[in-house]
Amino acid sequence: MTTAIPTQRPEASDREETAGRLLASSARMSYDPMVEVDWDAPIPDDKYGLTPEWSTLYGTRLWDELTEEQRITLTKHEAASVSSVGLWFEILLMQMLLRDVYDRDKYSRHVQFALTEVADECRHSVMFARAGERLGVPNYGPHPVIHRLGRVWGHFFRGANAYASVMAAEEILDMMQREFMRDERVQPITRTVSKIHVLEEARHIRFAREEVVRRLQGAGRARLAIERMNTAVVVYFVMKSMVRADVYTNAGLDPARARAEARANTHHQDKVRRSGAKLMQFLTEAGLVSRPTRLLYKRVHLI
C-alpha cells in the first residue's frame, strides 16, 4: 500500500529560511534549567509526579484500591521513568544531529540551528536527570536490551527515518507534558521541567517535520518501505519503554497484577490514541504509514 506524500512540500531553499527563523526564536526564548528550575525547593507530599489521568493504572480496579499516598508514589516513579526514557532518546538524537551535519556547510543556518538544537538537548538531558534525582526515585531508562540496541541502531539513524523518529519521540513526550505543565495537582518540579521542554521542543519538532518531508521527496518504493518500518519500530519501542515494569515493584505494588491491569487499561489506551492523533495524521500524510506498520502502531494504541 502506497500513501501519497503531501503535494505542498518545503522547497530546498526553504531550509535556510526555516532555520533562520528558528535561530531567531532560540535567541528570543531559550531557558537554562539550572536557573529556571528551583532545584532546592521541597518536594510536596500531596502532589502527583504526573497528571494522574496519565498514570498507566488510572481507571483500573487497582487504582481505585490505592490510597492517595500510594497513587502519589506511583506517579513519581512513572514520571521518573518517562523522563529517563526522554533522556535516553535525547542522547541518541544528539548523536544523529551531529552525524548529519558533519559534512555540511557550517556557515549554513541549517547546520547552525542543528547545533543550537544539540545545545538545547544537552540542557534537557541534564534537566531530566536532575528531576528524577530530585524526586528521589531510581534512574529507570529503557530496558537494558533496548538500551544496547540503541547503541547499535544509532549508527544507522539517518535520513528521513532519523528525523521522523526524532519528531515522533518528541511528539510523544510533548503530548503528555502539555498536560503536566498546566496541572496544579502535579509536582512543581515536573511542571517547570515540562514547560521548558514543551516550549523549546516546539522548534525542534518544526525543524524535524520539514526535514522529513524534504528528504522523502522522490523516494522510491523500496526506500519508503525502509523509512516506514524504521520509524514505526522506533515509535513502538519508545512507547513500550515509557513506563518500566519495575516502577510497580518500586512503588510497593504487586508487579504481576499491576502489569496485567496496565496492559488491559482501556482508559490509558484511549488517552494515548487521542493525544497521538496529530502525530499519526502527520506520519500518514508524509507517506510513513503502511499496512504492515499499522500493526505496530496499533500495538502501542496510537491507532
Rank of each mutant, 00 (worst) to 15 (best):
V272H: 08
A24V: 12
M242R: 03
T7W: 15
S194Q: 04
E200C: 00
T75C: 09
G218Q: 02
M29R: 12
R109M: 10
A264T: 05
R244Q: 02
H147W: 09
W39C: 09
R263K: 14
Y236Q: 01
Q269T: 11
H155Q: 06
Y236S: 04
A80Q: 00
S275L: 13
R99H: 05
E68T: 15
M229E: 03
L216H: 05
S125I: 05
P52T: 11
R104C: 12
R223W: 00
V272T: 12
P10H: 11
E227Q: 08
Q217D: 05
A27D: 14
S275H: 12
R274D: 07
S30R: 12
R274V: 08
T67P: 01
V300S: 02
Q70E: 15
E90P: 04
A286H: 02
P255A: 09
T116E: 04
A277R: 14
A160F: 10
K47E: 06
A208S: 13
Y48L: 09
V166H: 14
L135Q: 04
F180K: 08
E211L: 05
A258C: 09
A202H: 00
G132L: 01
L199Y: 01
K278E: 05
T51R: 03
A168W: 06
A160Q: 14
H197T: 11
N230Q: 03
T73I: 09
T249G: 07
A41L: 03
Q187T: 04
A114D: 12
D103V: 04
H124A: 06
Y107G: 06
G59P: 13
Y107M: 09
V137E: 10
A219N: 00
E133P: 09
I189F: 02
M181L: 14
S108G: 11
P6T: 05
L224C: 07
H77A: 13
A286Q: 04
T266F: 10
R259T: 09
Y140A: 06
Y236M: 06
V111P: 13
E121Q: 02
R209G: 06
D46W: 09
G159C: 13
V82I: 12
M29P: 01
H155P: 12
A222G: 01
G287D: 01
P52L: 12
L50A: 12
Y248Q: 05
Y236W: 07
R221Y: 05
R223N: 01
C122L: 01
T51A: 00
A245R: 06
G154P: 13
R223L: 07
R21H: 15
H197L: 14
E184H: 15
Q187C: 03
L288I: 01
G141D: 13
T3V: 07
Y48I: 03
F237D: 03
K271S: 01
F89N: 04
S26D: 11
R185I: 07
A160L: 04
A225M: 03
L115C: 10
